[in-house]
Design a binder for these strands. Structure first.
Length: 493
RNA sequence: CGGGGCGUGGCGCAGCCUGGCUAGCGCGCUUCCUUGGGGUGGAAGAGGUCGGAGGUUCAAAUCCUCUCGCCCCGACCA
């Protein structure tokens, strides 16, 4: 069952990341399909937990799920110029339908008159149907979400962070006014924040993207940015104000109360299986995956310990009784009563898989009326009374959930700084180094690109109020020109 | 897509430079025994068209050409 030893973070961070994924059996490269991944059951189970948390919040805010075609007519993509150029290089295209056998070999058969693009995102095809569905202000707002896979022909892939195919949700909404759309953009951004901070236990910085980093076709793009353990930023989710760009491209109009035709104001927002990558790089350690209890597919692993057959019968029965009690409290519990493995081997396995809490139950514990507990992030084992175990376990998991967030927050704080000199700025990003740096910027794309060229650091966002330092004027870190505010710089995934 | 590395039982590798018997090793796997509170020990087994195609040769894992895929660095991106 041991899949591999895990390289330490200090030795090779990229290798460590892959090792954690392999050791926890989260996913693996699809191998026979370029750039794609197989999400293994344990990885998909984590995704299902994340999905459930997001989906509940979407529905609580009035959104409905629907499904749109995987294939998009090529011509649709061309209707919004920015959008088309933004995604042109990453599109996989379906040009044929059907196969034929010639001399025992399979060949392509019918060439399509109009090729289809495998969806890299669905603004265009959803826009087409919105145009059909919307006719009156009474049809608005239209609040739709889709859970699906998309394909982007990436040149360089990394499991969960960037793969040819990935799974996500994409929300698409249409509104009668820009203000209403803008509210929606912020509402969803804050849902992402809520899930990141309260479920994934990852603190995030909310902000707006620069024009250069904006979604292709958007009026404005907002994001949540998280810090990984190597000091790099990871964009965790995005929420776009599409303005009327797609409304005009797809002629999505409605009659307002005074009978006039207007283009709708739209938003789109998405979060993907990349969240699992964020989870790994924010919390995991050199022993493998660490999962916050709220996204753990298994909360508690119970390892019964025995020597003799009679001991075995007693502890295994006690373990199953214990599991039943904990399940009654809503916990997901695994009793590892496999006979072929020594207890130590089981400890390592559940640790690699990120199970938050382990309970050891042996003859000595039974005699004492306790179970020995160890959390995935604690360094010592603690005996818990069996009679009060339910509440104890619940409390321990809550504490761990909070501790993970606090640990990640403290890490981010200790790796965030304000920088005012170019020499200091370069020093932070020298070599493989990265932190969150708040620095002044003159607001031009030229400077943004020059800084990236020189340091590999990019502007992750223009933080929203309450995120990052309070606004203050200063001079651009690179050009010395006047600047009204500091922006967040970091290297990124 | 450019530069670099790699592809040999499930995993990690040796062999390749300098072609030559039945392609080895460690881990894992199967069966049995043993062991059991942090990766038990032993015995006997199973498992490989050497990524794929073509070529050179009496003979190819090894040399040549093409191709597919993975990893790292870069440019592009969630």
């Amino acid at each position: 069952m041991v899949e591999s030893n895990i390289t330490t973070r200090a030795k090779d961070y990229a290798k460590w990341y892959q090792d954690v994924i392999a050791a926890a059996q989260l996913a693996e490269p699809a191998e026979v399909v370029r750039g794609c991944m197989v999400v293994r059951p344990h990885g998909w189970a984590v995704w299902e937990k994340i999905q459930a948390e997001l989906d509940r919040r979407f529905k609580e805010t009035g959104h409905q799920n629907a499904a749109f075609p995987l294939l998009i007519p090529l011509s649709f993509l061309q209707k919004e110029a920015q959008h088309a150029t933004g995604f042109a290089m990453e599109c996989a295209v379906v040009t044929h339908a059907g196969l034929k056998t010639v001399d025992g070999k399979i060949q392509l058969k019918g060439e399509l008159e109009e090729p289809y693009v495998v969806r890299p995102t669905s603004e265009t095809i959803i826009g087409h149907f919105f145009a059909k569905w919307i006719d009156s202000y009474r049809d608005l707002p239209l609040l739709i979400n889709q859970w699906c896979n998309v394909m982007r022909w990436e040149l360089r892939t990394r499991l969960f962070l960037r793969t040819g195919e990935f799974w996500w949700q994409e929300g698409h909404t249409a509104h009668a006014s820009h203000e209403e759309a803008q509210e929606e953009v912020q509402r969803m951004l804050h849902i992402y924040r809520d899930v990141y901070e309260n479920v994934l236990a990852i603190p995030v910085t909310l902000g707006a993207k620069t024009a250069n980093e904006r979604f292709a076709g958007a009026h404005e793009t907002f994001c949540v940015e998280a810090m990984m353990q190597d000091g790099k930023a990871l964009q965790g989710a995005t929420s776009h104000d599409l303005g009327q760009n797609f409304g005009k491209a797809f002629n999505i109009t409605f009659q307002n109360k005074s009978g006039q035709r207007e283009f709708v104001w739209q938003t789109s927002w998405g979060a993907s299986t990349r969240m699992i990558g964020a989870l790994i790089m924010a919390h995991s350690d050199d022993n493998g995956l660490v999962l916050p209890p709220r996204v753990a597919p298994i909360h508690v692993a119970i390892v019964p310990i025995w020597k003799t057959d009679s001991e075995r019968a007693a502890v295994v029965e006690a373990a199953h009784n214990l599991a039943r009690d904990l399940r009654d409290d809503g916990l997901i519990v695994k009793v590892d009563d496999r006979e072929e493995l020594k207890p130590g081997a089981k400890y390592f396995e559940w640790e690699r898989k990120g199970v938050p809490l382990r309970l050891e139950l042996g003859p000595r514990d039974l005699a004492a009326g306790t179970a020995l507990s160890k959390t995935r992030i604690g360094d010592k084992k603690e005996p818990l009374s069996l009679s009060a175990l339910g509440s104890e376990v619940g409390r321990t998991l809550d504490t761990m959930q909070k501790a993970l967030f606090e640990r990640a927050l403290a890490f981010r704080q200790s790796n965030t700084l304000e920088v005012d000199s170019w020499a200091d700025f370069e020093a932070v990003f020298a070599g493989a180094g990265s932190k969150f740096v708040y620095a002044h910027w003159d607001g031009t794309t030229e400077t943004e690109l020059a800084i990236k060229e020189a340091t590999k650091a990019t502007i992750r966002c223009l933080p929203l109020e309450g995120h990052g330092p309070a606004p203050s004027s200063g001079r651009c870190i690179k050009t010395g020109k006047p600047s009204a505010r500091r922006v967040l710089f970091s290297k990124n995934y």
